[in-house]
Computed example of a mutant assay.
Amino acid sequence: MDDKDIELVLPPGPRTVLHWFDFICPFCYVAQPRNQLLAGYGLEVVHLPFQIHPDIPPGGIEAGPRNGAMYRSLEQEAAKAGLPLNWPPRLPNSRTALSASEWVRRHRPEVSDPFNRALFAVHFDLGEDLGDVNVVMRHATAVGVDTAALRAALADGDAQTALSEAESAGGWAGVQATPTWLIAGETISGLRPEPEFELLARQAIEQAE
């Protein structure tokens, strides 16, 4: 991806933060308050989809047990953020949902955030199948998206191309896992503590001024 292509995917601006995520990533789910923190400092957070498990088949796979310190930590983070966390029994292929997310970001940016929140809730709260296009469309309708246009974009591959471009931009930025942020030229991977994000936000604002 060259600089011209990157500009088509990523809006420029000294206060812009890029955030790559996947709807089936629990760290991304509980990181939502981190993004709110960055926005609270006056930064524009651009949410870009990035499929972390493209190997999952269309019908999904069994998730297996969620035991151990990592899962307890995630549950504590979710409780702290006031986010329901009901571990789903299966992991879906998230490519359709991520493609829809990127299409909505480009064509209906004013409803992109609520649409993303809804699709996170589909997987981690509501017990619905994120891999089911009808589930995605129902939540798209709820936020006011023209689902006929979205279905057409999924059918002809335009939405999937948009996702691939967002992922290519992630590769350009060095994204290897989710969540990953690009803040003031620095790539930040993983769920860092809130005080570290506050420091990063202040540094980004100082650099932009």
Results as ranks from 00 to 15, higher is better:
residue 42 G to L: 07
residue 42 G to T: 08
residue 42 G to Q: 08
residue 42 G to R: 05
residue 43 L to I: 09
residue 44 E to A: 11
residue 44 E to F: 04
residue 45 V to E: 06
residue 45 V to N: 08
residue 46 V to A: 05
residue 46 V to L: 08
residue 47 H to P: 04
residue 47 H to N: 14
residue 47 H to A: 13
residue 47 H to M: 12
residue 48 L to R: 13
residue 48 L to S: 12
residue 49 P to W: 07
residue 49 P to V: 09
residue 49 P to Q: 08
residue 49 P to N: 07
residue 50 F to Q: 10
residue 50 F to H: 14
residue 51 Q to T: 12
residue 51 Q to H: 07
residue 51 Q to P: 01
residue 53 H to M: 10
residue 53 H to R: 15
residue 54 P to I: 11
residue 54 P to W: 07
residue 54 P to S: 10
residue 54 P to K: 07
residue 55 D to L: 03
residue 55 D to H: 06
residue 55 D to C: 01
residue 55 D to V: 06
residue 55 D to T: 07
residue 56 I to S: 00
residue 56 I to V: 15
residue 57 P to D: 07
residue 59 G to L: 05
residue 59 G to R: 09
residue 60 G to T: 03
residue 61 I to R: 14
residue 61 I to W: 04
residue 62 E to M: 13
residue 63 A to T: 10
residue 63 A to S: 15
residue 64 G to H: 14
residue 64 G to Q: 13
residue 66 R to P: 02
residue 66 R to L: 10
residue 66 R to K: 15
residue 66 R to G: 05
residue 67 N to R: 14
residue 69 A to V: 15
residue 70 M to G: 01
residue 70 M to Y: 11
residue 71 Y to D: 05
residue 71 Y to Q: 04
residue 71 Y to P: 00
residue 71 Y to L: 02
residue 72 R to W: 10
residue 72 R to P: 03
residue 73 S to M: 14
residue 73 S to W: 11
residue 73 S to P: 00
residue 74 L to M: 13
residue 74 L to R: 04
residue 74 L to H: 04
residue 76 Q to L: 13
residue 76 Q to F: 09
residue 76 Q to A: 15
residue 77 E to F: 11
residue 77 E to S: 10
residue 78 A to Y: 00
residue 79 A to E: 12
residue 79 A to D: 06
residue 80 K to W: 02
residue 81 A to H: 01
residue 81 A to V: 05
residue 81 A to I: 02
residue 81 A to L: 04
residue 82 G to M: 02
residue 82 G to A: 01
residue 82 G to N: 01
residue 82 G to F: 01
residue 83 L to R: 00
residue 84 P to R: 02
residue 84 P to I: 02
residue 85 L to H: 00
residue 85 L to D: 00
residue 86 N to T: 12
residue 87 W to H: 15
residue 88 P to Q: 00
residue 88 P to S: 00
residue 88 P to N: 01
residue 89 P to A: 11
residue 89 P to Y: 01
residue 90 R to S: 08
residue 90 R to T: 14
residue 91 L to S: 12
residue 91 L to I: 15
residue 91 L to C: 05
residue 91 L to H: 09
residue 93 N to E: 06
residue 93 N to C: 04
residue 95 R to E: 06
residue 96 T to N: 03
residue 96 T to L: 06
residue 97 A to Y: 01
residue 99 S to H: 02
residue 99 S to D: 02
residue 100 A to Y: 06
residue 100 A to C: 07
residue 102 E to T: 09
residue 102 E to H: 10
residue 102 E to V: 11
residue 102 E to I: 11
residue 102 E to A: 10
residue 103 W to A: 10
residue 103 W to M: 12
residue 103 W to S: 10
residue 104 V to Q: 04
residue 105 R to I: 08
residue 105 R to G: 08
residue 105 R to A: 12
residue 107 H to S: 11
residue 107 H to M: 10
residue 108 R to G: 03
residue 109 P to S: 09
residue 109 P to C: 08
residue 110 E to Y: 04
residue 110 E to V: 07
residue 110 E to P: 03
residue 111 V to Q: 05
residue 111 V to D: 07
residue 111 V to F: 06
residue 112 S to R: 14
residue 112 S to T: 14
residue 113 D to T: 15
residue 115 F to H: 09
residue 115 F to T: 09
residue 117 R to C: 04
residue 118 A to V: 05
residue 118 A to D: 13
residue 118 A to P: 03
residue 119 L to A: 03
residue 120 F to V: 09
residue 120 F to Q: 07
residue 122 V to M: 01
residue 122 V to P: 00
residue 123 H to C: 09
residue 123 H to V: 09
residue 123 H to K: 09
residue 123 H to Q: 12
residue 124 F to I: 04
